[in-house]
Design a protein around this nucleic acid. Structure first.
Lengths: 126, 126
DNA sequence: ACTTTTATTAACGTTAACGTTAATTTTTGC
DNA sequence: GCAAAAATTAACGTTAACGTTAATAAAAGT
């Protein structure tokens, strides 16, 4: 199949597929002299795996480091272990973000209270 | 004073001052035929107020909507009320972000558990 | 007068993941 | 054998707030 059909099957746009190719994430199985990209089921499966990993929240950069492991190891075990690592890192980062935001929330409240007081003092004074 | 001194006094770079000018946030008090920007204490005060509002977490866009109010109203009351509004919006947005991140955290944990189980099943099977 | 410092505008770079033209070529339907 | 659909590469646009050259001009110091 060509790029349009692959795109439709995978629920992405041709632009996305070419972009992934530019990142070395997804190569066409064949490129005739005409210049058209031709794909097989294997590339569709690969693209669907990319989508699945994106769903898990991995960046394309993380995906490119994880994806080769799925090919080395047909059971996908090595790949899954690596995905697990990435997800655990994400969990930690998420916790840090939540903590930082919570901290920021307190500062916001403090500032709100301070400015509110400042207004109260001046609007209802002698 | 010229741009370099103003920058130093306010703890920013000349580039920042020119950038603010391009946004209409801070105009020089005088511009001779030579092309140099000249500033007075008034502009320094304005720049310091910009910095203070940035410290509160306002974006430059928000600052440009808030700053004029400080000039209309010498007591700064109108400006402070507006800042209060902005901060309360920020508080709400922060709460939403925290909630979304917390939700994301649960999904992450669920995915981690699922993949972990997947690994356990296959690595220690018959 | 000459050197050093400071200023000027212009314009690209930074992040992620593509979207959106535009100009050209190939395949396909009839 | 031709028109319409689909593909090609190239290149700019998107966000925020500047950082970083580069080439040039003016000011200040001696």
């Amino acid at each position: 199949m060509r790029i349009g059909e692959l795109a439709e099957q995978a629920g992405v746009t041709p632009r996305t597929i070419r972009y992934y190719e530019s990142l070395g994430l997804l190569e066409p199985s064949e490129r005739e002299g005409t210049g058209f990209r031709y794909y097989t089921e294997a590339e569709l499966a690969r693209l669907q795996k990319i989508n699945a990993l994106k769903e898990l929240g991995l960046s394309l950069e993380e995906i490119s480091s994880v994806l080769p492991l799925y090919l080395e190891d047909p059971t996908g075990l090595t790949g899954k272990r690596k995905v697990l690592e990435v997800l655990q890192t994400h969990l930690q980062e998420t916790d840090e973000k939540i903590e930082a935001l919570t901290q920021f929330r307190w500062e916001l409240q403090a500032n709100i209270a301070r400015i509110q007081q400042c207004i109260d003092e001046r609007s209802g004074n002698s």
